[in-house]
């Protein structure tokens, strides 16, 4: 089973300690709701697990993944795919962005997967549109569809439904549910405890410089997450 394991993980920016001493295990089949106040380090933690940022202390390793390609910058890159809160789409059409992912996807990916991804994201009618012309919700759906083409075994979504209308939220929920059903391990950071985070089966909480893991998913938002409602 593919997993990312962090041992004694710590991160600080100059004098500011975000978290320390964290031992984390994120595996295929997990669906984890990552909570924490603004600036607590949710995005930083996800980037560390994706191999995009180097932790100040501790180590992160990937297990159960195929041997990395030569010239890979970090062995973690491509193991747990990270999606930015505002996803970056490359210059070109919607289809171009999906083609790009297909080029990076495992060799057994079929060419017809692009049509399937467009259908999944309900972006078929926009296939030839410039990606830069998409709305926020459409951009997020395209980014998830692009990640889906890679058949990720672990996927991290950073605030995937923030500032999204109901229709887009529901589509992102459907796409995420599909990924979960496919067995993809999901780590979802969200300020909005709603249908999306309801998919999760466990919870991580970054608070007071510590990361609490394996918390019960049943919690009372009013007691623990005032910031959720405030946001």
């Amino acid at each position: 089973m593919a997993s990312i394991i962090a041992r004694d993980l710590g991160m600080q920016f100059q004098q500011r300690q975000l978290f320390s001493g964290a031992n984390l295990h994120f595996a295929e089949g997990d669906c984890i709701y990552l909570m924490g106040d603004n600036g607590s380090g949710k995005t930083t933690l996800m980037k560390i697990l994706a191999g995009l940022q180097t932790p100040s202390s501790g180590s992160v390793s990937a297990e159960g993944f195929a041997t990395k390609k030569l010239w890979q910058k970090n062995t973690l890159n491509g193991c747990a795919v990270y999606l930015h809160q505002h996803p970056y789409l490359y210059d070109g059409t919607v289809k171009d962005n999906l083609k790009l992912a297909l080029e990076l996807a495992p060799a057994d990916s079929a060419g017809s997967a692009i049509a399937e991804a467009l259908e999944l994201a309900k972006l078929g009618h926009l296939a030839k549109s410039q990606a830069s012309h998409l709305s926020g919700g459409e951009r997020q759906r395209l980014a998830i569809a692009r990640a889906w083409l890679l058949k990720p075994r672990l996927l991290m979504l950073d605030e995937p439904v923030s500032n999204m209308d109901k229709e887009s939220r529901e589509l992102v929920l459907a796409m995420t549910a599909r990924l979960k059903a496919d067995g993809t391990g999901l780590l979802i950071a969200s300020h909005q405890h709603g249908q999306l985070t309801a998919l999760c089966t466990s919870r991580w909480l970054i608070q007071d410089g510590r990361i609490a893991t394996n918390l019960d998913i049943r919690f009372t938002p009013s007691q623990e997450t005032h910031y959720v409602l405030a946001n």
């Binding site: 994706a50 191999g51 890979q72 890159n77 491509g78 990076l104």
Partner: peptide
Amino acid sequence: DRRAWETALTLGASLPRA
């Protein structure tokens, strides 16, 4: 945009490809 670089890496692109 730094996200262009990070997105390429997280999608699994090799260093020259990214």
